[in-house]
Design a protein around this nucleic acid. Sequence first.
DNA 1: CAGTGGTCTAGACCACATG
DNA 2: ATGTGGTCTAGACCACTGG
Lengths: 260, 260
Amino acid sequence: MNDVKIPAPHERGDHGLSAFGGLIFRPRSDTPIWQQIYDHIFGLIESGLLQPGSQLPGENHLAEKLAVTRITLRRALQQLQREGHLTARKGVGIFVRNLPATFTVRDGRRFLDNFEARGQEIGTRTLLIVREPAGPAEALQLRLAPGTEIVRLCRIRTSGKQPVYVNTKVFPARIFPNFEQIYDPGQSVTDVFRAHGVDNYRRLETRISGGFASPDEAEILWLTPGTPVFRINAVNEDSNGVPIEWTHGCWPLTSVEFVF
Amino acid sequence: MNDVKIPAPHERGDHGLSAFGGLIFRPRSDTPIWQQIYDHIFGLIESGLLQPGSQLPGENHLAEKLAVTRITLRRALQQLQREGHLTARKGVGIFVRNLPATFTVRDGRRFLDNFEARGQEIGTRTLLIVREPAGPAEALQLRLAPGTEIVRLCRIRTSGKQPVYVNTKVFPARIFPNFEQIYDPGQSVTDVFRAHGVDNYRRLETRISGGFASPDEAEILWLTPGTPVFRINAVNEDSNGVPIEWTHGCWPLTSVEFVF
DNA sequence: CAGTGGTCTAGACCACATG
DNA sequence: ATGTGGTCTAGACCACTGG
């Protein structure tokens, strides 16, 4: 508490608390205190003094160091969480989120071709792959009778360990009898398409809307529930106009840019 | 507590407070109190008991009626504001936002053709139309030398009085010598294009990203600052590939859906 | 167990808009 | 002058995570 050192990023256990020391926030200024704190922490992140993935000091320590109430501090922290710069884990701590500089997704291309992630490695994790009867929404999108068997695939895309995209894909099971066997080794849907004679397909329509992360989505994407997200919704057709894939998913608002 | 009335929307001055009466929120439930309040108010809005444009009771009254602290109540109200269901005006009150059911904007069409606003009338308000030297960003987008004269046009689109879209358009001034005269009567950019011999043009690229409303944008769009928004950014070219318009603007996240 | 973030209370003062 | 929403304080208890 009394050690006044130059803010070396990773001190032994103090989580770089010194970077926050000696600050004075003027209460009766034109800008609210919580916003001054927001600006300060945001500056630390942008300038790189707070490295991605590093942990912030505990809220009690921080509030004391900044000479404000924990509630006032939390107001600033929560805005930073909603904007995707921080992520909090209960019982653990608050961490600097790995902002992947915004991806650029171009419509009509394969996912991996789409990324222009600067220096970040892209990963895929398959959460679920099952065959089951189509629900009403799925049947509608794929133009099937309700109850027709479909293949459901849930995946996460990560950038440097950090999840940035969760999506669900639905396929007519009849067209892809060997889906699981072919998908398994490379986790590539395109491989599955090719192996079943679908060499060409096109995106019929893409819908982009906005929403707010459900508790489930928040947990998967390491977000605070209620954080704003993009929702994307698209159908792919084969060359004969038969729908072969309905995909819908969810991105943190600040992790992606769509280019058409 | 004892007045059990059907919530008639506009009681004499009580702002429909009765709709909030007699509620009990269990503190040690599995869901937080603020979220129970959120759910309750959201339900009132969705069911139409709280009409669009109507005013909520004051926070002090509401907090008393719901038997919670004003801070706890505010937590619920602020989430509703961020999600676009409520809008607060300092010194005035909190109002139910007119959710325009989400527009559908199709790329490459004229704006008015794009709307599928159900029963809402679309309005246009021109905030600014000036000629001035191009800044660096504008010069880059229009492929002009910095300082070249451009026409800058700022407009708001409204749906039933409520602003839903604010954007800025920039044009090379040299191509449109009579911009202002032609634009003025109908507020139509297409008219200006036609009058200057531009009968055909196409959208080169559209970029959609996410952000958070600046104080200026928030005021224009009747939002709370920091509310999540879509940002859209596009360039139109004439048939010879010459950029003739750079447009960028901002939508509340929950007011629009993009279809491509 | 100690430390973390999540929630909640009971007050208070301020800037702002309206009548 | 009144009522509004915006900000801030000084406490408190809880559920969760980790060692």
